[in-house]
């Protein structure tokens, strides 16, 4: 191979490296790498699982109820004779999608309000800060239970409830991040240049609060996964016969002595997702803090 060819290969490689540079905050620790692996794996399960499932998740009597693994049923059957593997492969969608949707919604409302409040300042900012403070003192699970009990359990109610719980939390973070940036020289400079407020907000402030806000969002999604899975487990989210992981765990709980795999399989699914997300969030936070250099071997 000519020197030229090697150069090209090197270029291609460095292009790939540069393309993946945005992953650096996640991959700079090996815990972050494991987290990325776990989450990618769960994404594959959630996206392709329904196509790979050997049986429809709600088909009854695939085998005798509560059979242990064996006889072509990799994880056995649950109390209604449904295939546990198929239910594992199809049951992760809600636990991932609802938190992502809820966090997005909460960012678009609470996050935006927080940013605008810090930027505008004055009375509006004071009122917003007070309202956030009051909302943050409310115990999320209790409020969620009350709201869901009153409005009935549906995916939409669940999504809105999680969004309402997260909005003030995200709002407080964006407000703090914006307040730290508003007085910076480059914002003053933009003001002196006579830039419009909206331009300053989009061009100067938004890029500079991105890092703390995004790493906070990663943490929120982790919390959201745990929150939604817990509510599903309590029977306040997904409803039977959904194969949702949280619901399946609650459903199989009474038969744990006979067929532990029926509850163990969705437990592993939830655990892999929440641990993976938390490792990613943790790694991103560490990248931002001064600790990143000292603790980089972790």
């Amino acid at each position: 191979m000519s020197v030229d060819g090697m150069m090209q290969a090197g270029d291609a490689r460095s292009r790939v490296v540069r393309g993946l540079a945005f992953l650096r905050p996640v991959t700079h620790t090996w815990m972050g790498r494991i987290g990325l692996f776990l989450v990618t794996l769960m994404l594959v399960v959630i996206v392709f699982g329904p196509a790979l499932a050997p049986h429809p998740p709600n088909q009854l009597n695939v085998g005798l109820p509560l059979t242990r693994p064996g006889n072509g049923l990799v994880l056995g059957t649950d109390n209604l004779g449904r295939d546990v593997l198929s239910r594992l492969l199809t049951g992760g969608r809600m636990v991932l999608l609802v938190p992502i949707a809820a966090v997005t919604l909460a960012t678009l409302t609470g996050g935006l309000v927080g940013m605008v409040a810090a930027y505008v300042g004055g009375l509006f900012d004071a009122i917003v800060a007070r309202v956030f403070d009051i909302l943050l003192t409310l115990p999320p699970l209790l409020i969620a239970l009350a709201v869901i009990a009153g409005f009935g359990s549906s995916v939409l109610v669940l999504l809105l409830t999680v969004a309402v719980v997260f909005a003030p939390q995200i709002g407080r973070v964006t407000r703090g991040a914006t307040a730290a940036v508003v007085t910076a020289d480059y914002v003053q400079a933009a003001r002196a240049r006579g830039e419009r407020r909206i331009t300053i907000a989009v061009r100067e402030i938004a890029p500079n609060i991105m890092a703390p806000v995004v790493s906070d969002l990663a943490l929120r999604v982790t919390y959201g996964v745990i929150f939604v899975a817990s509510l599903n487990f309590l029977g306040l989210g997904a409803q039977p016969p959904s194969s949702d992981w949280g619901l399946s765990i609650a459903n199989s709980l009474g038969y744990v002595q006979v067929q532990p795999f029926a509850s163990l399989a969705p437990v592993v699914g939830v655990a892999a997702l929440s641990v993976g997300l938390n490792l990613i969030a943790d790694s991103m936070m560490r990248y931002l803090s001064n600790d990143s250099v000292k603790d980089s071997m972790l």
Binding site: F233, I249, S263, V270, A271, S274, N278, L279
Partner: peptide, 13 residues
């Protein structure tokens, strides 16, 4: 870090 990320019902089960 792993323990902290596990929901209560996962640990419980």
């Amino acid at each position: 870090t792993v323990l902290a990320a596990l929901p209560e019902f996962v640990v419980g089960l």
